[in-house]
Structure formats: C-alpha cells, structure tokens
Design a protein around this nucleic acid. Structure first.
Lengths: 208, 208
DNA sequence: ATCGATATCTGGACGACGTAAAGATATCTT
DNA sequence: AAGATATCTTTACGTCGTCCAGATATCGAT
C-alpha cells in the first residue's frame, strides 16, 4: 500500500520509515522548494502522523542533516565521475565545473547542505578525511598536476581557495545581475568558465 | 516614554515606527541571532502589537529587505573607508579584506543580506549602478590598477570573479575545519591573506 | 474650529508549525 | 506465551505569520 522504494529489511511497523522520511524530504525539496519543507509536510508526504519522525530523528535539524549528508554523497559522486572522464590536465577544470553544476541543478539541496553545516559551524567531518570526498579529490588533483605534496599547509590553502572560488561562484551564478554576461558570452557554461579563468584557476569548460 | 533615537519628524502616533522596527530587528539579530528574528519578536522589542508592523511592511520579507538594505549601506561604507586608507596598489587588497571582515563581524546581518537577495534572485539593483556601491568600488579599483576600462565585459568578469572569491571566503571562514590553518598561519587575517593569494588576487593584509 | 477622510495601532482569531507527553500497537526476546 | 521494547497515533501547548474588525489619533477642507 505504501510506496516500496528499496524493499530493504523492514524490521518494524512501517519498514524503514527513516529512509522514507529522507526520501519524502528530498521530494518536497525538489518539487516545492525549501520554504515548504516542514517536518509536518514530510510526515504527511510519508503518510505518517506529525510526531512519527521523532522516533528516528531528535529534531527537524537532524532530519535535514540526513538530507544534507545524502547531498554530499551525491556531490562526491558527481565530481568523481567528472574527474574520471577528464584528461589529466583538465581534471581540476572538470571538478570545478561539476561542483558549480551540481549547485545549479540542485539549488535547494545545495542550500540545505550549507545551512546544516553553518548550524554546526563545520562542514561534514569526513570531508577532509575520507579519500573519496569532493574536497580530497580537489587536493589530490592538485598534486597530480604538480603541487608539492609535502608542502601540506600550502596544499590545503590552495584546496581551500579553490573550494571558496567554486562556492562563491555557485552562489552568485543564480542571480539575475549576471544574465547579460551569460548572454554576451553565449551561455551559462561560458560564463562559468570565464569567471573561473579570472579566479586564476584557468579551467576549460566543456559546452553541453 | 518610547525610546527616542533620532527625533525626526514624528508625523503619526508612534513617530516613525518604521525606523524603530528596523532598529529593533537589528538589535535582535545581533543579540540573539537569526533564528530569534520573528516579526512578533520585533514588534515586542519595539513595544507595539504583533499586527502593527503590517502598516509599514507588507510582509516579514519586506522588513528583512529593509534590514538587508542597511546592511549593504554599511558594507559600502566599510569598503569606502578601507579603500581611502590604503595606498593605490593595495586598494584591491583593502577592499577584499574589508568585505570578509564585514561578513565576519556581522554574520547574521550578512546572512540576511544574501537571503533577501536569493528570494528575489537578484542582488540589490543599484549595486551595479550607483557609483558608491561596494561592487563599483571593486570595478573602479581594477581600472585604477591598470585594467582596460573599455573592455567592459572583461572588466565585469574580473569584478564578478573577485566578488565570488570574497563571498566564498566569507562563507567558509567561519567553519571549524580551518581553525588549524588559522593557528598555523598565526591568526585569522593571515589565513584570509593566504587564501586570497591562492585565489590570484595577491592581496596584502594588514594585521590588526 | 469642526468634521469627515485617512492613516495608525490594538485585540482577537485562524491555520500551520515544532515539539512534548501519554496511550495504543506491533515486533523482539526469552 | 509473555513481558520488554520499539514504533506510531492522538492530543495538546506555545509560537509563528497574517488577516480582520474595531479603536484612536492625525490630516485636509470647509
């Protein structure tokens, strides 16, 4: 009767309500935006009472943490794919573009990711540790392109700078102010490439 | 009986309740953060009924617009001061640092500014037009430093890139992840300078 | 100065929200 | 089979954004 999704072990009444709630949240986020994302709406969408989520999440914030966590995984995957498909000297390019495109294609999710981080005053912990994180992919790529892997501080600074640039651009790219620049440059990707170039990253963008 | 602030023309009952509401909002924002900033709390702080603000603002969003607008003016002023005090070849430096420091010192206000912009999908309109805006100060400074003023597209791209870099850094600087970098570099300003350098802006930071 | 029009503020109400407590119900352990 | 435990529902409380009907003060024209 309920939608089935992945029919994983359903140990209790509903059968992995936790999963269903996160999915419901993502569905609402995509369909109606962040302002419509209330705990009650998520419960409604999942077909349970307003108090049910509290057996799986301490808070609304904890639900959003779970959503954000999936967002980071998606970002990691998108950047892994982009890196794999690019030639060595274009890998940094590919990573930056993949980052900004992810933010453009999932604006609400991207917002939830950083909102959750701001509340804890920290990006996801494993971002600097786990080797398959987007952050580490950027750092590793810099080494592959010739950065000195023993100059750890400098390497981290460079990675942080690239991250700042990508995040700043991701946040700005949506504003109307830059519409005329996008037009004059012949598209959004050209705009992104041009800004990246001025940021000193000299990324080359594939037009799609 | 009511607090007096600027005793400007008080044409009606309260005497410029609009001003009082914006001030109250900024006070709450500074003292208790963005989550405590409800319309009712603002009205309470200003000593009026919960419905009173609706005679001066269509919305809660419209009140926040007014707060954000003051934030942009403050940013403009801070950057004007920084530019005036710096030597010519350091002016871009000074602007970038002033931007990030403003965000660091007024985090809640900075957030309101960009939240309001995101809702309208546009930064304040006069940002690209009025000559005393922070954005135009960056662009003009680039010309003073040798950028070709007739290459308008390139000039705008460079300005946009600098803006993205500053915004990205402003958003990242608050995260705990970078604490160890700040320590190892001997302070937050040194960290900011280092990241700016990697961003290709090569700004020199004064330590304060 | 008077009086109607108008702008400002209050009080009360509505629905939606986050969340807590208590009761019902299904699963797990033994 | 039965008690313990986890899950879900119902009900409830306080807060929020917003609207509406009245009260009150200012303004404009006479």
């Amino acid at each position: 009767m309920r939608e089935s999704h992945a029919v994983e072990a359903r140990p209790y009444h509903h059968g992995d309500l936790r999963r269903a709630l996160v999915d419901a949240a993502r569905r609402i986020l995509e369909a109606e935006g962040p302002t419509a994302l209330s705990l009650r709406a998520v419960a409604r969408e999942a077909g349970v009472s307003p108090a049910a989520p509290y057996h799986h999440f301490k808070d609304k914030a904890e639900l959003l943490d779970a959503v954000a966590s999936e967002g980071w995984q998606m970002l990691d995957a998108a950047m892994a794919k982009a890196k794999a498909q690019a030639e060595t000297r274009n890998k940094l390019n590919a990573l930056g573009i993949a980052y900004v495109c992810f933010a453009r294609d999932n604006p609400a999710l991207y917002r939830v990711m950083y909102d959750a981080a701001r509340d804890k005053e920290a990006l996801p912990e494993d971002m600097q540790d786990s080797e398959d994180s987007a952050y580490c992919k950027v750092r590793n790529t810099m080494v592959e392109l010739g950065a000195d892997p023993t100059a750890t501080i400098d390497l981290e600074l460079a990675t942080t700078a690239a991250w700042c640039a990508a995040h700043g651009l991701a946040e700005m790219a949506g504003f109307k102010q830059f519409d005329h620049l996008k037009e004059e440059l012949g598209g959004e990707t050209a705009f992104l490439q041009a800004v990246f170039a001025h940021l000193g990253l000299f990324l080359h963008v594939r037009h799609d």
